[in-house]
Design a protein around this nucleic acid. Structure first.
Length: 159
DNA sequence: GCCAACGTTGGC
DNA sequence: GCCAACGTTGGC
């Protein structure tokens, strides 16, 4: 089993949106970056766990955990002319973009802001903390995932 | 809103 | 295949 971090803008789609979706499930469409696409298509497996990161938020940070419940399949929005994710160069025979489905697992009792993440020496190797990292999907080390999950489930008053 | 740090596109 | 121009991301 592997661990990942997915970025999302909470104004567009937040962890609460995921939690309140039917079956607490959503397909992760709209990824239009080849490196992120390759992670989804080739490496993200059923049962993998995903940190949900709120970007362009105040403050940005990690909000909780989701689980992969369906492996890569073609992202339908690439064929939809009305979608902002429409890709005229993609064909149904050879789809260019893929998505996975995830299900809400938990929302952290204490949201972990980017500032806090930066202050943990244990996390300094995390890809998300590297300068200029814009990848919307990144692999996460097991030790980092477990540290974050543990921290996220401390109650606010104990921090 | 600014802008650094990317990633992509397209002319050559 | 190079690289300038352009577009996007995302923290601040």
């Amino acid at each position: 089993m592997a661990y990942w971090l997915f970025k999302t803008e909470p104004d567009v789609f937040s962890i609460d949106d995921l939690r309140t979706r039917k079956n607490k499930t959503e397909h992760w469409d709209g990824v239009r970056n080849y490196q992120a696409r390759n992670f989804m298509r080739d490496e993200i497996k059923l049962g993998d766990l995903v940190l949900i990161y709120h970007s362009n938020a105040r403050p940005p940070g990690i909000a909780g955990v989701a689980e992969v419940i369906k492996e890569a399949y073609p992202d339908h929005t690439q064929f939809d002319k009305k979608s902002k994710y429409f890709d005229p160069k993609s064909t149904k025979d050879k789809p260019r973009w893929f998505m996975v489905d995830i299900r809400f697992k938990e929302k952290f009792k204490s949201y972990i802001s980017l500032d806090e993440l930066k202050n943990f020496p244990q996390l300094k190797e995390m890809l998300i903390l590297r300068k200029g990292n814009r990848l919307s999907i990144t692999p996460v080390d097991k030790k980092h995932f477990e540290f974050i999950k543990k921290h996220g489930n401390l109650s606010k008053s104990s921090i």
